[in-house]
Design a protein around this nucleic acid. Structure first.
Length: 195
DNA sequence: TAGTTGATCGTCT
DNA sequence: GACGATCAACTAA
């Protein structure tokens, strides 16, 4: 599967967020390939969005958010978890889309192993840190170019607009009223339902 | 099922 | 010196 082109990412974050639903994220490892279908995302709009890491400007941690669209911004939080974002827009903009949940498609045994086994399929990747753990995404993957061949995103079946739910974002205090979380209605791998 | 809490540490006010 | 774009385990009912 070919990676989505750079132009896909050089659009407004909320447009990219909606269009990411239903597409496939593919991680190529030395011995295996793991694939998940993206089912839940959140848009973070940089200097227009108090909840965004980029709101207060560029720092060492959030530098990748200000790169050109199509890179992966991975951050460490709560002392133990990683979360992954797709950077959108031109260089310097600082917008990104958080990948909150995927539906496991391929490499499920490896996901279970990374997640320390004993999980139902629904609990493997239904949260931003769970997804990163299942896919082995950590600090080293920060700044990965999604047009390369280690981590890429490929188009899937388009999701009908009537099946896209927009809801409030999870786990933030600031700008909690903005409905910039998007997920596929009825999908069993979404982390939480609407609010 | 809903609500609470402990784990654990990098980052920035 | 707080406090997270979280998760899992626990309690109560």
């Amino acid at each position: 599967m070919r990676p989505l082109p750079r132009s896909f990412y050089l659009r407004p974050a909320r447009t990219v967020a909606r269009d990411l639903l239903g597409s496939y994220i593919i991680r190529t490892l030395p011995r295996t390939t793991i694939i998940g279908k993206i089912v839940e995302v959140e848009a973070y709009l940089g200097d227009r969005d108090p909840a965004s890491h980029a709101f207060h400007g560029r720092t060492e941690r959030n530098a990748v958010m200000f790169w050109r669209g199509g890179h992966l911004y991975v951050y460490f939080t709560y002392g133990m978890h990683f979360c992954a974002n797709v950077v959108t827009g031109e260089a310097g903009v600082g917008h990104a889309v958080l990948i909150r949940a995927v539906e496991p498609v391929s490499g499920i045994a490896g996901m279970k192993r990374r997640r320390n086994g004993g999980h139902k399929a629904e609990d493997l990747t239904n949260g931003p840190a769970k997804f990163c753990q299942a896919f082995g995404i950590a600090r080293k993957e920060n700044g990965t170019d999604l047009l390369g061949n280690t981590i890429r995103i490929a188009a899937g079946e388009p999701v009908r607009p009537s099946l896209i739910v927009s809801a409030t974002r999870i786990g933030i205090r600031l700008a909690a009223d903005k409905r910039w979380r998007y997920y596929i209605k009825g999908n069993a791998f979404v982390s939480r339902l609407s609010r």
